[in-house]
Design a protein around this nucleic acid. Structure first.
Lengths: 226, 226
DNA sequence: GGCGTTAACTTAACAACGTTAAGTAGATTG
DNA sequence: CAATCTACTTAACGTTGTTAAGTTAACGCC
């Protein structure tokens, strides 16, 4: 009975079809919409057939997300290829690629950062997978070329990653791309626009160039209230 | 039959007891461990009794989290009171309070940032609730006192919030407090230590003070590969 | 060419879940 | 005193992940 033609079945690679259906459902309806029975129905097999290829739902989801992050790595590699080694632009481009991919595939990100209990064992399994190594290389290069101050590169990577990831998570929590209740013009901007607007702050810091050459007015020294 | 003594019941405030049981379960076992039946069992009523006080599970969880974020607001207010108005220290302390509270109550945070579909309607309902306004005030004060460069305060708040929140999310994804697989010394640090280590980067930027007074070696201009 | 093993499924069923419907004891009220 | 309301209860529905047991086709082997 191998290769029988059910509705929408692909003769042969059932495991691949399950992964594909699961991926589509995750993107379409989120983790809650990805049920074993729905996946099975799309593939054209019974729900329990999935257990022949995957240990349980958790492993199925994990495999789907892992697959997604391989594409993610390619995004980042492409961003790096597009800019000269050692440049700040390259570092910035990696961040933008992170953001862009996450916005286009937000279901993956939401899921990956919620697998709490057992899964992420190695750093390769972590949210950005091999992307960490790529960003780190871009940072080290930029430090060597003098485009960036020389400090502990892992600290620098963590700083850049945190900033980008936080912006992403807040944007996603505000319901994809836009949060209409934000009244301020600033908040109405897309995550990518905000990321770019962060540029001067990231390069020169919150003190700013002016504050470093000229002394500014001192703050009142008393502990304020309200 | 009001005020009957079931196991662990509090005579009188059943609604409060439900909220309390739900809060404990959320902290103990996460969102998955918070089931209507388990909550009801702890309170000493039947599962469906909960629907007399809450419309559905979503509302129950929402109320629990909202309650948690009220305590969170108090954390931040206290951090602000402890430092002089207009100072950078005050801004930093708000960030630390954010981090500290989130680490001590990570169940709240995980949940709040995963309510995707309907809920967060107003900015007050958003992840940090009224904390946004408090941080914004600290930032505006710091700008006026000259302790911080003067730019769009909402942009500055978004920058600081993103950085702190991202660090938090990454740390939580790495399984509370510590991620043993990280080999680097940098990554082995606690979120709070990392936050403090970010200090120079946040104040002076990734270029650094040195790079702004003296010209650095230029980067190679060709598009790099690998 | 029958035989045993295995891969690839199937149906039936279980426990747990959120939720609804219908009923009921006790207090409050006209 | 009947009617209503509050604060629940039990029973049940549909869906979920998952397990157990059975079935069917294919393959290697003497």
């Amino acid at each position: 009975m191998a290769g029988k033609d059910h509705a929408g079945s692909r003769t042969g690679d059932v495991e691949g079809a399950i992964l594909e259906a699961a991926r589509d459902l995750l993107a379409e309806r989120g983790l809650q919409g990805l049920s074993m029975r729905t996946v099975a129905e799309r593939v054209g097999v019974s729900a329990t057939a999935i257990y022949h290829y995957f240990e349980n739902k958790e492993e199925l989801v994990h495999r789907v997300v892992r697959q997604g992050f391989q594409r993610f790595g390619e995004y980042i590699e492409q961003a790096m290829r597009a800019h000269p080694r050692g440049s700040l632009e390259r570092v910035r481009a990696v961040g933008e690629a992170y953001l862009q991919f996450a916005l286009e595939n937000h279901a993956y990100f939401r899921v990956l950062f919620n697998l709490q209990r057992p899964h992420p064992h190695t750093i390769e399994d972590l949210p950005e997978g091999g992307g960490y190594g790529l960003l780190r290389r871009a940072v080290v290069d930029a430090m060597e070329s003098g485009a960036m101050r020389s400090i502990d590169p892992d600290l620098m990577v963590m700083y850049l990653w945190s900033l980008t990831h936080g912006l992403l998570m807040i944007s996603l929590a505000c319901q994809i791309e836009q949060c209409p209740e934000f009244e301020s013009d600033t908040m109405a901007r897309t995550p990518l626009e905000l990321f770019q607007a962060f540029g001067p702050l990231v390069r020169e810091g919150v003190l700013g160039t002016a504050a470093m050459t000229a002394g500014a007015a001192p703050a009142d020294g008393a502990a304020g209230e309200e």
